[in-house]
Design a protein around this nucleic acid. Structure first.
Lengths: 197, 197
DNA sequence: AAGAGACTATCGATCGATCGATCGCGTCGC
DNA sequence: GCGACGCGATCGATCGATCGATAGTCTCTT
């Protein structure tokens, strides 16, 4: 038994929240998926909403940490944004359920929990903003509306979680590479010198 | 009284489904928003799910018709896709609630209703596919993966519904123009000659 | 003109089902 | 015997949906 019961509960929640939504998932569904009674469930979680908040913070926090590592010490803005795009795409392709829950159920949270999640998301998006702003001021990127371009690119990459299947013909690396190319082009960078290295 | 009661019910549903989700919205919430008792509600709708399906078909059907008109007789693929992007963006900015419901609650529908909605969506996306395929075969567009590029662009444009506010400084036309430019660049088209005319 | 019948719109009351959450009790290992 | 772990039973609340009743309006009949 490599997984703790608590982990089993979280995975069950991620699966069901992603498939049926938070309000569409009952405590009893959760219990069945986690192979527990609905009463035992409460030994491993607070309320249903607290469980949702934990899942969101876990997922977003992990993405944020990975992103910080990916850009740490990288000075070239093009390279920095390329890494952010590649990481974002591969993460969304590998963990579509987690990211769907994060993107989809923020409105369910109480104001307090929402602030925590939104704070993490803002910190993550700041990495994108900085890379884009640096690229613009260095003359590498060309965009009239950096803020809108950032959101557009983020949304573009978010979509991966809604359709990507590992059974397709495209490898994760090829997928990420394609999105990096799309993003760089959108920022006015030519088709050379933006491979992730 | 310019609006029928039935229209009032639909608008209430769009507002609440977009804000709290289908499962997060109760019949009594709906009744209150529509200024009716929950019993009277059922004189203007079938089940709650049928109401959702109607809203989705209405919204998607209108978008599909507008899109068909926008590209009718337009032969240049770049121009065709530009018009599709502009229409998509302005529609999502003008009717964020409707599009949020469509994008967000498809999984709630029964298989039969879902087929109808997905059919409309596929027909709409076909317009994009055709424009992109034509552009590639004519050498106007440059993309290694047309299908992925199409999805990426669609998701990018969908995002508008999640953040655009008419109170911002950007006009609808400027917004649409920016997205058209992003899309054209992503397809390898230079910054000239892709204004919507 | 008067009334019968049909139809529309609206409601309070209520149905059985399910919701999230809790209680008390058993069963282990330490 | 004391926590951690587990479950059946059950709590009050709310869910989606339906019932029968009450007006109001229109049409048809006499």
């Amino acid at each position: 038994m490599a997984v703790t019961t608590r982990e089993r509960v979280k995975r069950a929640a991620v699966k069901l929240f992603a498939a049926k939504g938070f309000h569409g998932t009952g405590i009893r569904d959760l219990a069945q998926e986690a192979k527990l009674s609905s009463a035992s469930l409460y030994h491993y979680m607070g309320t249903k909403e607290e469980l949702l908040a934990e899942i969101m913070c876990d997922s977003l926090g992990a993405l944020l940490e990975s992103a910080k590592q990916a850009v740490a010490g990288v000075t070239d803005p093009g390279q920095r944004l390329s890494r952010l795009v590649a990481l974002h795409v591969t993460t969304h392709a590998r963990q579509p359920k987690e990211t769907r829950v994060v993107d989809h159920e923020i409105g369910v949270l109480s104001p307090k929990a929402r602030r925590a999640v939104v704070g993490l998301r803002d910190e993550y998006e700041r990495l994108w903003s900085d890379a884009i702003a640096d690229g613009v001021s260095e003359g590498v990127f060309d965009t009239a509306e950096p803020a809108i371009t950032r959101i557009a690119l983020l949304e573009m990459c978010n979509g991966v979680a809604r359709w990507y299947s590992p059974k397709g013909t495209l490898s994760l690396d090829a997928l990420a590479g394609h999105y990096v190319r799309l993003a760089m082009r959108a920022l006015g960078v030519g088709d050379d010198r933006h491979a992730v290295s």
